[in-house]
Design a protein around this nucleic acid. Structure first.
Lengths: 340, 340
DNA sequence: TAATTTAATGTTATCGATAACATTATTATA
DNA sequence: TATAATAATGTTATCGATAACATTAAATTA
């Protein structure tokens, strides 16, 4: 491997001079600069980031930990994070916890040993607390995405889950629905809890009662076992006229199960959900969704992280950004009002 | 930051002894081992991977470079690669070139400076050649995914693009279609070229002629400008009865454009494509596809890469794995045969 | 021209770990 | 008990870069 010393020797200068040329620091004469650059070119020299990181005590690496790489919400978010990282000269490492606390634990270890400069993390849920405490203890700056974790204070980018869910209820009610079910992710996840609250509040505001048999809790993740959900969908009697899904994955899965039973969307059942489907929003039944600004989650989160890293002051208060959800009305809700 | 020396001091041993405990090498007495482990625990010591990488001359980091993080083919592939990497104790860095040679160049620089142990790369196209030559020159082992690059010999995992395309033609012909269009990715990408060849051969085998007005070339990537494609779709006269898309993204985009013009799938136009839609294959129009084994691409590619890294012999010949495409017949093709 | 800046380059120590060799402690054998 | 063998631990050099300080060369000023 070509090192800075090989370059130095061939250019008949010291390693330090080469270093100065590379980093454009200090004073170097035009002549030696040109000579060194030519030699670097000739030898195909590439600086060793590992050695650099060791002495500089920074890796210029950031880490993005998401919970479901198959979910367009997170891939879009990843694009945003990537763009923001690149703009500031950081490179991005990346991991996928699959909504599992155990896999998340592995990644936390990786993060600590890799000495990344900072972490963007969508936590698997409330049990992520010890992981975050571990990051805090080792002074690794981090920003949470999408989910709060009780017990930890930090920078965070959130969606307005409660208001979004209320909005979805209102939309259904406005189209005449009064019997509305809810499939949601685990209640150990803050966004799921808030969506549930928004659903309940929305129902109450419209004098509708929340029937627990119409509420089902499972996992937000792709590739989850669907048998229990299938049971639930088949056993609601009488069936609701509409359903809210806690995220896009659940909506698509619910739809699949409904179709298996010969129930059509939206003719026999209306469905709305949180999060858009990315490029697949164009596929029938054209889901009506409370779209979250996935790209912004990643981009703004990354900006906050980088600011925090570059911050010398440790006294700056934690920042919290709440992004509104945007109702995209498409075609998965049937109007069942009795028109006058 | 807690270093190995802090641990050594507190445990009243040398750094080397601590190192031996960490790596479980050499001989250490039970007593000191326990003591050192307790001290590490107490101090919350985590080894510095950067320092370790510098002396060991390996990072235990691998890099996966894909061309479209929004495409379920690549996210599924990424899952496979991640699983295989983890099984062998490697961590995975990740980048998204967005089908752009320029962004790819940036990532190549990152890869070289980061001194990763190996790279899995889905090249942006034939112009990726210098990037691969650069990896080769710096002795970074790599495995190509999905696309060949003329001029470079290496390990590679491919899909059987030509046969897959022929299969799609056959399927359409079997349903009475004789006027079949093709939207494809750039011909500077080997898989796109082979799919085009498969299409042409399939047509000839059925005594159908390939009308160039029915063939359109654009980019495989999500978020590409669609105006030219829109033009093309609107100007085919007479319109074909069926269309083959070079990948899933193009199929979805084509469908969107068709719908904008009031053309229904499959009633007015049949569509088939390469690559499945992941979780979104359940959304109408239930695309009939030549599904590639995306997860296997990632998993097997990663295995080949790791074998190559651990290989001491440099004489082992390059390996080439060709995975067959699997025809998933769903509902996007209309049967237009005149039944007897 | 000598003295003083300032520009240009070099030397040494360091980051945190481990390899290779060195030493000391312990046990087994003669 | 002396000696060899082995177990346990320690010391030093090294990976490739850069910071901090040191030195030399060139330019400026008195």
């Amino acid at each position: 491997m070509i090192t800075i010393y090989d370059v130095a020797a061939k250019a008949s200068v010291s390693a330090m001079t080469v270093s100065r040329v590379i980093n454009n620091t200090g004073k170097i004469s035009e002549k030696t600069k040109t000579k060194v650059m030519r030699v670097m070119e000739e030898l195909g020299y590439v600086p060793n980031q590992t050695a650099r990181s060791l002495v500089l005590q920074q890796t210029k690496l950031l880490f993005l930990l998401i919970t479901d790489i198959m979910n367009p919400f997170y891939t879009t978010l990843a694009r945003g994070a990537e763009d923001a990282a690149k703009r500031s000269g950081y490179r991005l490492l990346f991991g996928n916890s699959d909504e599992s606390i155990e896999k998340e634990a592995d990644y936390i270890t990786t993060i600590l040993t890799t000495r990344v400069d900072g972490v963007l993390v969508a936590p698997a849920g409330d049990p992520s607390l010890p992981h975050l405490e571990s990051l805090r203890k080792h002074k690794v700056p981090f920003v949470l995405l999408d989910r709060e974790v009780p017990g930890i204070e930090c920078d965070i980018v959130l969606g307005d889950s409660k208001e979004g869910a209320r909005m979805l209820v209102e939309h259904l009610v406005a189209h005449g629905h009064r019997s509305i079910a809810m499939v949601n992710g685990s209640s150990s996840i803050s966004s799921a809890r808030l969506r549930m609250q928004g659903y309940q509040e929305g129902m109450k505001l419209n004098d509708l009662n929340v029937d627990n048999r119409y509420v089902f809790e499972t996992s937000f993740g792709t590739m989850t076992d669907l048998s229990e959900m299938e049971q639930w969908i088949g056993h609601m009697d009488p069936p609701p006229t509409a359903m809210i899904a806690g995220n896009n994955v659940l909506a698509v899965e619910a739809m699949k199960l409904l179709r298996d039973r010969g129930i059509r969307v939206p003719e026999d059942m209306s469905i709305v959900c949180f999060d858009d489907l990315g490029p697949y929003s164009e596929l029938d039944p054209f889901l009506t969704v409370a779209a979250q600004q996935a790209y912004q989650f990643g981009y703004m989160g990354m900006q906050m992280l980088i600011e925090r890293i570059q911050e010398r002051e440790t006294t700056v208060p934690w920042k919290k950004i709440v992004l509104p959800a945007d109702l995209m009305i498409r075609r998965s809700v049937k109007d069942i009002r009795k028109h006058s």
